[in-house]
Structures are given as C-alpha cells and as structure tokens.
C-alpha cells in the first residue's frame, strides 16, 4: 500500500471549520480513504462538532450523528443494534471522539460497549486536552503540559487508554498517528474486517493548543513517534506488536531525544531540565514494557473467541 493507492474521493469536504493545520482533520480524511462512505459516524461534543460547520450545512458527506459528550459508544451501540435488525450489517459504525470524550467523561459508555463486544470501531483522536472548549487539561494531557487549567504545567501523567481498552480483551486495539498515513489506513482496514469492538487511539497534534506553528503538525506527529513518546502498535487477538517505525525503537539508541519534540511546542515552555529528565525516564520505562510485551506476547486465540 502506498499513498497513491488511496482514493481521491473526499468525504470531509473543503471549507470546513477546523483551525489551520488541524491534525484531527488529516486523520478524518484518512479515515474515509480507508473505510469509504458506507459509514455512519457518531460524534460527541469535541472539535469535530465544530469542524462540521453550522446548520443547514455540514462538511461531512457521510451520515453523522451528533451525540452527548459521554455517550459516543452508547449511541453507536443503539445504531449497531438497529442496523442488525434491519440487516444492514455492511455499514461500518465509527465512534469518533476526542480525548476528553474518551478517557474522561466517555470512558464508562466505551467500557460498557467494549465489554458487550459491540461491533464498531471507536477512534479516540487525542490532542491531549479539551480542545473545543479552549485547551483545558484532560486525563490524556501529558506531564508538564500547559493548559488553561494547568497554567504552570500538569503534574500528573497521561492515562494509558489503549492498554485500558486492551484489558477489555477486545479483539483489536491499535495506536496510530496521521503523520504515518499508511499505518493508520492499514489499521482501519484491518479493524473493519474484525467483528466486535475495535479501538484505535491516534495522536493528533493541535497547533492551537500545543502552541506551535501550523506547518509543523505532521512533523510533530512524526517526532512524537521517533522520540518514542508515542509508540505505534497493535494488539490483535491479545498479541502485542510494534509497527514500523516504532518497532526499531526498542533499541534506545535509535530513539531521538524527547527534547526535539518538546522544545517545538509552547505548551512545554515551563519544563525544567529535571522535568525533561523525568519524562525521558518514563519514556524509557514504557519502552522496557513494550519490549517485554513484544517478546512475551503470544496470542491465546481461544481466550479471544477466535476459532
């Protein structure tokens, strides 16, 4: 698969209301390139509420259900049930929610839907704060980051949502980043063909909230991966696997220093050398965990209901 093999069709239409340089918008375009338009999108309160534009127009050319903040997975559950009753299972139901709507207020409905094996793809597009309301701290905001509610920098670490979802023993969990479009598209296509709940967590840089030049969105996503701050992996039927280029980064020497990523962003301006050292230590610990997960992880398919 190469970029040129991706469809020219656009289902996120130009003239939408996202900020210039919006990371989630790149991811949305890729979503439709991967899945086509036989899709029903469920969107809670998040930046994508804004991206649509205002009534009577929308920038989305697929059916889109706007729903309450904490309810993406619950609405998807109802839609999936109705489609099954109507024998329309060919349509893919996609929950598309921000990090606040996923790791904080929406975690209950998501956990319930996953436990019930609801047949849908849930995508958390993570810009590491409540972006729509002007960048307040969320459970996905990383340590040290400025937000409007942590003006001196957040003092707690980012919640590890993909592994929380993996603990539900769903058949497919993946991380991605639109800076690696083919990886993301491949994961979406794989997810589409698996029955049950699929969870994909994507890091989507946000120039408005992260305080960097709008032209750097793709570069920052790339740096997040290259420094090892964001690892690309998938957990398929319980088997953990790092994806390129993250798979090479188990070797510490191949990881770029996190400073290259942090110093490009105004939100990390208050970090001390000590903070940076602490973050680097955590990153290294994460990678030790990924290394163990990679070497120890064999899929026990029977546990996951695969026959």
């Amino acid at each position: 698969m190469t970029i040129k093999e991706l469809s020219k069709e656009e289902y996120l239409l130009k003239g939408h209301a996202a900020c210039a340089g919006c990371g989630p918008s790149i991811a949305l375009r890729l979503l439709f390139k991967a899945l086509g338009n036989n899709v029903i999108l469920v969107v809670p309160a998040c930046c994508t509420t804004v991206i649509q534009g205002t009534y009577p127009y929308t920038s989305f050319a697929v059916p889109l259900q706007n729903i309450l903040f904490e309810s993406t997975a619950a609405a998807a559950s109802g839609i999936v049930a109705a489609l099954r009753q109507r024998k329309l299972e060919g349509t893919t139901v996609v929950g598309w929610a921000g990090d606040g709507g996923t790791v904080d207020i929406g975690i209950q409905a998501l956990s319930g839907a996953a436990e019930r094996k609801t047949d849908f793809i849930y995508i958390c597009y993570d810009n590491e704060a409540y972006g729509n309301t002007g960048m307040q701290r969320s459970g996905a905001t990383p340590y040290g980051a400025w937000t409007t509610t942590t003006p001196s920098g957040k003092r707690e670490r980012k919640k590890d949502m993909p592994l929380i979802m993996a603990a539900h023993r769903i058949l497919y969990v993946a991380t991605a980043c639109p800076s690696f479009p083919i990886d993301f598209v491949n994961k979406l296509r794989k997810a589409k063909d698996i029955e049950g709940t699929k969870y994909i967590h994507i890091l989507t840089p946000c120039p408005t909230g992260w305080r960097y030049d709008t032209s750097k969105t793709v570069e920052l996503g790339r740096l997040a991966v290259q420094t090892g701050l964001w690892a690309l992996y998938e957990i398929e039927y319980g088997k953990f696997k790092l994806n390129p280029p993250s798979d090479r980064l188990v070797d510490e020497a191949k990881r770029k220093p996190i400073k290259e990523y942090l110093t490009l962003q105004g939100r990390f301006r208050n970090l001390t050398e000590e903070d940076i050292g602490q973050i680097q230590k955590w990153v290294d610990e994460d990678w030790e965990r990924y290394r163990k997960l990679t070497s120890n992880s064999t899929s026990d398919s029977t546990l996951y209901g695969k026959t």
Binding site: I40, V42, Q65, I67, L68, E70, S71, A73, A74, A75, A76, S77, G78, I79, V80, A81, A82, L83, R84, Q85, R86, Q108, A109, S111, G112, E115, R116
Partner: peptide, 24 residues
C-alpha cells in the same frame, strides 16, 4: 429484538436515540 444490556440509564437512553435514528 436486539437487547442491549447497557451499563447505565444514561447509555440506555442514548442507545435508544441511536437505534431510533438508525431506523428501529
């Protein structure tokens, strides 16, 4: 009937909204 054993009443109502919107 599709019987969704939701994890809260809030989700019960939202699932009904989703189902009714999707034609059931």
């Amino acid at each position: 009937v599709e019987y969704i054993r939701v994890e809260s009443e809030h989700s019960a109502m939202v699932a009904c909204i989703g189902a009714a919107a999707a034609g059931a």
